[in-house]
Simulated scan of single mutants.
Amino acid sequence: MRAVFVTELGEIEVELDAKRAPVSVKNFLRYMTAKAYDGGTFYRTVTTTPDNQPGKTVKINVIQGGVREGFKAFPPIALERTNKTGIKHKDGVISMARDTPDSATEAIFICVGDQAELDFGGKRNPDGQGFAAFGKVVRGMEVVRKIHKSHAEEQALTPKITIKKVVQK
């Protein structure tokens, strides 16, 4: 199954891995079906430039986005760890953002380059549980890279990049 993010900078097509990450894919699809990402944004870029991740010893490269303002998130989902799914945070992988384990709701991120520190056992999150990867970009990495290099104040994209809609393909 595939989904297409139609952004103001172009399209990003992702292939969803429902076989290995069924909980995360089902979660993403419920937001997509509710049209919650329509009018949402990519609002964060995390880069390895000196001023982007001050105080972080483990640096990553991702873009992060989510639903439109005012959409009430569904309850959080259980964390599907990469040591169980086998989906590693490689270049173009899409994953659920979270704070603590079992806290992911609607926010997603896409890896720019390989990001092993986001996998189970990685050191980006102090709990070492990693993040729930659930698919990969199959078309539109040039759009991901353009968003990643867009103007930001610290990690906040300025301006945010609009997600016009997300549709199933």
Rank of each mutant, 00 (worst) to 15 (best):
A36R: 00
G92F: 05
P75I: 05
G40D: 00
G40L: 03
F131S: 04
E8I: 05
K88E: 13
V144W: 04
T49D: 13
T48W: 09
M96Y: 04
K164M: 10
L157M: 06
I110E: 03
F5H: 04
A34W: 09
A116W: 11
D127G: 05
P76Q: 06
V138I: 15
D127P: 09
A3E: 11
V4T: 14
L9G: 02
K88Q: 14
F28T: 02
T162C: 06
Q155H: 12
T158F: 00
V137N: 05
E106G: 13
V93K: 01
R20I: 08
G128V: 08
M96T: 03
L16H: 03
A107E: 14
V137H: 04
V93M: 09
D119G: 09
E106D: 12
A78K: 15
T47M: 00
G122T: 09
G128H: 14
T85E: 10
I108A: 05
R68S: 00
V14R: 00
Q129V: 12
R2C: 11
K169S: 13
V137L: 08
V4Y: 02
N27D: 11
T100R: 15
T85F: 07
A3G: 10
N52V: 02
L16F: 10
A152V: 01
I147K: 00
Q53W: 07
A133D: 06
K164W: 07
P54N: 08
G140W: 03
T57C: 06
A156Y: 12
T57P: 11
G39V: 01
Q115H: 11
K90N: 13
K59W: 09
G86M: 06
N27T: 02
D119Y: 10
V4R: 13
D114M: 10
M141K: 11
A152K: 12
A36E: 05
H89L: 09
S95H: 01
E80M: 10
R145S: 02
K19C: 11
D38K: 04
S95D: 01
V46W: 01
D51V: 04
S103G: 05
T105W: 02
N125S: 14
P54E: 07
K123H: 13
R139V: 02
A133Q: 10
K72L: 12
V112C: 10
T85I: 07
L118C: 10
G10V: 05
G92S: 09
E15I: 04
K149L: 10
K90D: 13
G113T: 05
I12P: 05
E13D: 07
I12D: 01
A3P: 02
G140Q: 07
T49N: 12
I63N: 03
F42T: 00
I77A: 08
P159R: 06
P50C: 07
D127I: 09
V46M: 11
L118W: 10
I147P: 01
N83H: 15
I110V: 14
P159E: 03
L157C: 06
V14F: 05
